[in-house]
Write a protein that binds this DNA or RNA. Structure first.
Length: 115
DNA sequence: GAAATGACGCGTT
DNA sequence: GAACGCGCCATTT
């Protein structure tokens, strides 16, 4: 590939993920949309799967339903839950507590800091 | 070039 | 609320 071939899409997605504040979570499609690539939710997943970057908050990326993308028995699942809880995110049954206006555990910044 | 795969999303049942 | 099916995208076989 050309030396000048800058993966704009990938770079944009990674940037969007990095932009998620600590203690907050975002969805694949949401990240893709934020990166200017609507419908590329799957591309986000593929990137996280093969990025290998520890500095990237991949654990803050969940499905649109707020559920962990990994199967409940998978090691990745446990790792993600572990990391989220370490940041103060409430995870119950493999699902992240959505900012339902109830108990102000998480002020709101969660499901969409730009909302 | 077609078929299969995958850390997805949404509407229906 | 859970299970099922179809659509969408990019990479791999």
């Amino acid at each position: 590939m050309d030396a000048l071939s800058a993966d704009l899409p990938a770079a944009r997605i990674l940037a969007a993920i990095r932009d998620v504040p600590r203690g907050a979570v975002a969805g694949y499609g949401q990240i893709a949309r934020r990166a200017g690539l609507p419908g590329r939710a799957r591309m986000v997943a593929r990137l996280l799967a093969g990025n290998g970057d520890d500095t990237l908050p991949w654990h803050r990326i969940l499905r649109s339903d707020g559920r962990i993308a990994f199967p409940p028995d998978s090691p990745g699942f446990r790792e993600q839950v572990r990391r989220l809880r370490a940041e103060g995110v409430v995870v119950e049954k493999g699902r992240v507590r959505m900012p339902r206006g109830d108990a102000g555990d998480l002020d709101a910044a969660l499901w969409g800091p730009d909302a």
